[in-house]
Design a binder for these strands. Structure first.
Length: 440
RNA sequence: GGGGGCGUGGUGUAGUGGUUUAACAUGCGGCCCUGUCAAGGCCGAGACCGCGGGUUCGAAUCCCGUCGCUCCCGCCA
């Protein structure tokens, strides 16, 4: 059987076709029945003249919204039909899976949309909404464009293990799993492994994969499992080289999304995708602090050297105002708030060669030049109070010819959140995982 | 881990001490309607107001506890 996508029916006028999809609306009258059918390519009206087949008409009357149907019929032009000026004259109908009534909620009633938690209970129905269909089309193009750019720049894709043997960076944010007779942990980042790829001489690598964080965070932007976009490049001079690549890469991804779905995004999300100009503005932490101070923004006193989310939003507003940029690198963070593997400035050893990328006021990526000198790295680990036994395998990466290198880690769903202007990360991920959410 | 907010038919809301036998929208069921198209009209079912305790003549409404959700902070992407 040849199935015709609803979106291409106008190419099949006066032909008998088979469509398969969901019954979005049934308008059930005495003599005429109208079935609005949906597949992922669009909507079409199917018309049935009841007296012509009363039995079929009675059966149609029992169909619940969102039932999965196979329908054959003749495609005819009909100017009266507001939905595309055409309709299908029903010939046969097969119920593949009747939808029970009533539905838990109506995915197409935007005025009575349930709260996010209830929609997550029935996520597959929630995903039938056009906003969500488009969101995942956009995500696909976004990821594809990112890969394209990486491949055009001679990157190698890696897949690092998600089961690891020892707590590495701190341990507190790791999920513990039973691994036969002993403990293992879910990787909270591919950080060490992509650095190993640098030691292996791959020179440029990327990874798109799951990362796990055992943080009991209850916010609109955190998940316990999310998709990380990671890359690492060798033979850099400083973190500036990483940022210079990152912004062009992101600019390309935005450009491809806008080209492909710009008008649909405008229609569905009311967002005009703006392809960012490069370079993005860069502010050192010291400059960011001075600006916030001048604005009278009150930073929490105990967080000296760090930027709280409110501060990030304030500085993003400043940059938007002054440079008309939605993106901003905050660079040169103090060592106190950065991990031991970030390289320090030779002329300012209390500062790291690191950056955060802020987009739309939200932190979407963290990057740095890494410390690739074994002894220096070892000393910095000791300074941070880390036990060397657990990370010796990692330190060993830097014993036999490790090139200078750096990279970043970015959150895919956070990028989508910013790109489409969504208020909650739970809207921008296929299935949310949080401290209290393990199903579906 | 700390703090704030919310919990009323399936869903979204109104009602914040007394004709409330808890309202409205949507959904659901039935009937009607010569083609509808955000369909329309009429009728109907559906909520002991998260749960437990208390204050009061009287509690959806006030208080305490508890559970759930949510947002903010911390942590981070």
């Amino acid at each position: 059987m040849d199935r015709t996508p609803i979106g291409s029916l106008k190419e099949h006028l006066n032909e008998t076709v088979t469509i398969q999809g969901w019954l979005q609306t049934l308008r059930d009258q005495k003599n005429m029945q109208f079935l609005i059918m949906r597949d992922r390519t669009g909507l079409v009206q199917v018309a049935h003249y009841r007296p012509g087949n009363p039995e079929l008409g009675d059966m149609i009357s029992t169909l619940g919204s969102e039932s999965a149907l196979t329908i054959t019929g003749k495609v005819v032009e009909n100017k009266v039909v507001k939905l595309g000026g055409l309709e299908i004259q029903l010939e046969t109908l097969t119920v593949e899976n009747a939808a029970e009534t009533p539905l838990p909620f109506d995915p197409f009633d935007n005025d009575n949309l349930p709260a996010i938690d209830f929609r997550m209970d029935w996520r597959y129905l929630d995903l039938r909404r056009e906003q969500n269909l488009l969101l995942f089309k956009v995500q696909t193009v976004l990821e594809h464009a990112m890969r394209e750019y990486w491949l055009e720049n001679q990157f190698i894709e890696i897949h690092s293990p998600k089961i690891t043997g020892s707590p590495s960076e701190s341990g507190a944010e790791l999920f513990e799993v039973l691994y036969f007779e002993r403990k293992a942990y879910l990787a909270q980042s591919p950080q060490f492994y992509k650095q190993m790829a640098m030691a292996a001489g791959f020179e440029r690598v990327f990874e798109i994969g799951p990362v796990f964080r055992a943080d009991p965070s209850f916010t609109s932007r955190h998940m316990t499992e999310f998709t990380g976009l990671d890359m690492e490049i060798s033979w850099i001079e400083s973190h500036e080289d990483v940022m210079a690549f990152t912004e062009k890469w992101l600019q390309y991804a935005y450009k491809r999304v806008k080209e492909t779905y710009g008008s649909e995004i405008q229609a569905v999300f009311g967002v005009d995708i703006k392809v960012p100009e490069v370079p993005f503005p860069r502010l050192t932490m010291a400059e960011a602090y001075a600006i916030l101070k001048a604005q009278g923004y009150k930073l929490p006193p105990e967080r000296k050297g760090d930027l709280d989310p409110g501060g990030e939003r304030a500085i993003a507003d400043y940059v938007k105002e002054k440079y008309d940029s939605d993106f901003l690198f905050v660079i040169d963070w103090p060592i106190s708030v950065r991990p031991f593997y970030h390289m320090r400035h030779p002329d300012a050893p209390e500062l790291t060669r690191s950056f955060d990328l802020i987009a739309g006021g939200l932190e979407i990526a963290t990057g740095a030049q890494r410390e690739h000198r074994y002894e220096v790295l070892r000393q910095q680990a000791l300074e941070k109070g880390l036990g060397l036994e657990n990370i010796q395998y990692y330190l060993d990466f830097f014993r036999y010819g490790a090139p200078p290198h750096g990279g970043f880690g970015m959150g895919l769903s956070r990028v989508l959140m910013v790109l489409l202007g969504l208020p909650n990360i739970r809207e921008s991920v296929f299935l949310f995982r949080g401290p209290n959410r393990l199903t579906p």
